[in-house]
Simulated assay, not measured.
Amino acid sequence: MKFPLFVSGVLILLAGCQGSGLSLKDDIVFQQTIPVCATDEECEKVWAAARQWVLKATPQGLEVDSAERLQTSPADDESYLWETDITVSKVPVAGDKYQIVMEAWCNTTINSCEAERRLMRRFNKDMAAYVSPRQSQAILRVFNEGDDMDTLFGSYAASLTAGDLRRHADMYYLPSTIVSGDNIRQLGNSDDVVAFLEETRARLAGDNITRVEAQQRQLLSSSKNTAIVQLQWAFYGAADDEPQYTRKATYTLIKIGKGWKIMSASLGDD
């Protein structure tokens, strides 16, 4: 059975969609990048682009093709081609404007919905070319910042198992605070950060951990220069397909120049 990944209020509701946790570019970020048109000319331009996008994204064609709604013909689950059901709606919002909202449908029996999530993100990003220049810049900025955050945590994960720790100490905006249970640790300079990373690496080596991944990354809140990100660290041995253990963490980030740095971290129990 298929269920829609649809937008309501400020959250994407994964109705019946069973899969991995939301990544940085879901929920809040998706909401921030939904394309909006303000004039008849702009709306016609975005709608025409949305129609062509849907026709290229999935092969089964349109069952509904109106000025307010696009809906693909039902996907054939037995097809050798990748098919998914897509709906695009023109939704009135305040100020005589319209949101162009894309909904993908997920078959919970054969996939984890991740492909549908990526499709929804890609739609918003691709539609940025057809909205006003100001909105286009804002949409692309959100996606670029999400990419920068992914780079930050990917590099941080690498630093826990290999690499130059002093170089990675630059990821912290100092002084920084690390909270783990009842333990509060202040990192006042780069030497403190290196010592913290070395202690972490020593514990991982003792557990025969050779690979660390940042998973289930979710943006909890954001402003122009700060963001709060929650994720799960997964720790693997050399031959592991599944992590030996995981640990939740919440990070407060600050935008410095074109990148992000860690202001504080709250680490959950192992």
Rank of each mutant, 00 (worst) to 15 (best):
M1R: 09
K2P: 09
P4R: 06
F6V: 02
L11M: 12
L14E: 13
A15I: 09
G16M: 03
G16F: 05
C17S: 07
Q18D: 07
G21P: 10
F30C: 12
Q32E: 13
C37D: 00
D40I: 00
E41I: 05
E42M: 08
K45A: 04
V46I: 04
A50G: 06
A50Q: 01
W53S: 05
L55R: 10
K56T: 15
K56C: 08
T58D: 02
G61K: 05
L62H: 02
L62R: 01
A67P: 01
E68Q: 12
R69E: 14
L70E: 00
S73K: 15
S73V: 11
P74V: 02
A75W: 01
D76Q: 10
E83Q: 15
T87L: 13
T87H: 13
K90I: 00
K90Q: 04
K97E: 10
Y98D: 07
Q99V: 04
I100R: 01
M102C: 15
T109F: 12
I110G: 04
N111A: 11
C113L: 07
C113I: 01
C113M: 03
A115C: 09
R118T: 06
L119H: 07
N124E: 01
K125G: 05
D126G: 08
M127I: 11
P133T: 05
S136C: 05
S136K: 12
R141P: 10
F153I: 04
G154T: 09
A158S: 11
S159Y: 00
S159Q: 02
A162I: 13
R166A: 06
R166P: 00
R167D: 13
H168V: 04
L174V: 02
P175K: 09
T177A: 06
V179N: 11
S180I: 10
D182W: 06
G188S: 13
S190A: 15
D191P: 04
D191K: 12
D192H: 10
V193E: 05
A195Q: 09
A195C: 06
L197G: 00
E199G: 14
T200M: 13
R203G: 09
R203C: 03
A205K: 14
N208T: 08
I209R: 09
I209C: 08
T210K: 08
Q216F: 10
Q216A: 14
L220S: 07
L220P: 05
S222V: 14
S223E: 00
T226P: 15
T226K: 15
A227W: 07
Q232C: 15
W233V: 07
F235A: 04
A238S: 12
D240T: 12
D240L: 08
D241H: 14
E242G: 08
T246L: 07
T250V: 08
G257Y: 05
K258P: 00
G259A: 11
W260R: 06
I262N: 03
S266T: 15
G268R: 05
D269Y: 15
D269W: 14
D270E: 15
